[in-house]
Simulated scan of single mutants.
Amino acid sequence: MDPQDACRIAIIGLGKVARDRHVDAISRAPGARLAATADPQASLPGIPAFPSLEALLASGTGFDAVALCTPPAIRTRLAAAALAAGKHVLLEKPPGATVAEVTALTHLAHRQHRTLYATWHSRHAPAVEPARARLATRRIRAIRIDWKEDVRHWHPGQDWIWEPGGFGVFDPGINALSILTRILPRPVFVTDAELLLPANRATPIAAHLRFTDTEGLDGRAAFDWRPTGPEDWTIRIETDEGPLAIERGGRRLLEGGLLLLDQPKAEYPAIYSRFTALAGQGASEVDLAPLALVADTFLLSRRHTVEAFH
């Protein structure tokens, strides 16, 4: 593709995920080009930089789309402003703080004839689609999810994740739920939940869920941000044709203990390839199933206070 025809993307919010994932992914995705950034405290060498989306829009800088990498609690206002200005919008996960606000954005994108893309990067992991194909014709009896990582490693100094709308342990936990809702042939729903909240924080540091479907699936998930040793991102599935396991967040796929696949993940370039394709078609893609499961968890949960987290 001629670089002049590439989708010109501005990154809004130049924090850890933007620097670690989005900048490189845009450079590697055919049909995408980084045109600008907007962040009050950060910039990139050689890229036009602005302190805010409003300043970027007022500058006259040419761009076609925004990638919103800010905390979810402020994302809806920014997405609405970008859509109103005629820009396509990519939402880093989770797409917003509530189901209702993302639904409203979907309607706005339709009225503006612009693309709204709610990304679920873990769905692009290499084991996800092969697992989905295998499960399409099997009877699924039970699912166990273990998603445990060290919050200090992945979110150093990020206090926003502990505030209302910051999701707490569901910031990574929703990755597991995004894989789950992609690979299963039927929708699932939460039946019981327990949230563990540090005494000095507003969002959970750990959670335990039970979920099912209309055929009585036995589903359980454990999310935990406290481990400081080996981390675990595993989904184990019992079927009428034997066990299936997705390991390392979607990098590995095992069937009956036999390793079928172990590949490096390239999730974010795949996200941008999908986004530019959608923008070229003027189409949107907003699947709220993972976010709805988190919202329902908060509705149904029993809350327990645990020791303060610092």
Rank of each mutant, 00 (worst) to 15 (best):
A176K: 01
E215I: 05
F298T: 11
F170W: 10
C69S: 12
G250C: 10
S43G: 08
L135F: 09
D240V: 10
I205N: 03
Y117L: 06
R33D: 10
A202D: 15
G96Q: 02
E129F: 09
E231C: 07
E215C: 05
P71H: 09
A29K: 04
H110E: 12
E101C: 02
F309N: 12
T305S: 08
R152F: 11
I183L: 09
D150I: 07
R303T: 15
H113T: 07
A81N: 05
P51N: 09
L196W: 12
D39H: 06
G60I: 14
R141M: 13
E285H: 06
I11C: 06
A295V: 10
A32S: 14
I11F: 11
A55C: 06
G86C: 08
P95A: 10
V169H: 05
I12K: 01
I237M: 02
Y117I: 05
N175C: 13
F211A: 04
R201M: 09
N175M: 12
A29T: 06
F298L: 13
T61F: 01
P126F: 13
I140C: 05
R28E: 15
Y268M: 09
D240C: 09
A295Q: 13
G219Q: 05
I12F: 10
V306H: 02
E238Y: 03
E247M: 08
T61D: 08
A109W: 00
P198L: 07
F223Y: 12
A136N: 10
G229I: 06
A283E: 08
R248V: 04
R77L: 11
D213E: 08
I246K: 01
A109R: 00
R274P: 01
V23A: 06
D192W: 15
P204R: 08
T234N: 12
A85I: 09
G229V: 07
V188S: 05
E129P: 04
V306E: 02
